[in-house]
């Protein structure tokens, strides 16, 4: 007799525990205000990433097409996996001196692990992270980017 009572009790308690779980899920079912899902591709226009988000490395240029990169190569040394390659050239300044300047700042997004060491160690704050997060392309070669814009020059006052 006792075993039958015990058996029935287990069944009732088991069903009760399932109902308690169902109560939580049904609460969410009937209160759609609590649902946190974002409809991603539809909300693309209003979607703003947080300011520190590490999207990709960019080199900010001002309106005169000037950047701060002196071509010192510290970012290239600090990069752990060869993402950054700097090709420098020698230019002759207005007062006739020879000076090293940047020709191409190559950034390979496909190899980048977003450790932020390049941005952090740059002595002239020439690099920054953008908030872009949709990086997918159809051709792998498009991931190799040249950060300095064509025809850009070093900003005045940056050594």
């Amino acid at each position: 007799m006792r075993s039958i009572i015990e058996y029935l009790r287990e069944i009732v308690l088991g069903i009760w525990s399932l109902l308690k779980g169902m109560k939580v899920t049904s609460t969410y079912f009937f209160s759609p205000g609590k649902i946190v899902t974002q409809k991603y591709p539809e909300n693309r226009k209003s979607l703003v990433m947080l300011e520190r988000f590490k999207g990709e490395v960019v080199m900010p240029h001002n309106e005169k097409n000037e950047h701060k990169c002196t071509g010192c190569g510290i970012c290239e040394i600090n990069c752990p996996n060869g993402t950054i390659e700097i090709i420098s050239k020698v230019i002759i300044t207005e007062d006739g001196k020879k000076k090293k300047a940047i020709d191409k700042h190559i950034y390979r997004l496909g190899m980048c692990t977003f450790c932020a060491l390049c941005v952090k160690t740059c002595p002239s704050n020439a690099l920054a992270f953008s908030q872009k997060f949709e990086h997918a392309v159809f051709n792998r070669a498009l991931l190799n980017k040249i950060l300095n814009k064509p025809g850009s020059q070093l900003m005045k006052g940056v050594e």
């Binding site: 947080l50 520190r52 988000f53 590490k54 692990t113 977003f114 450790c115 932020a116 952090k120 992270f129």
Partner: peptide, 24 residues
């Protein structure tokens, strides 16, 4: 993860520590 993203810039792979302190 949103808290991490706001402070560290990364969500899962935060890279927030560095020898001698914190990145930001």
């Amino acid at each position: 993860l949103d808290i991490f993203e706001e402070t560290c810039g990364g969500r899962m792979l935060v890279s927030y520590n560095c020898p001698g302190g914190l990145m930001y």
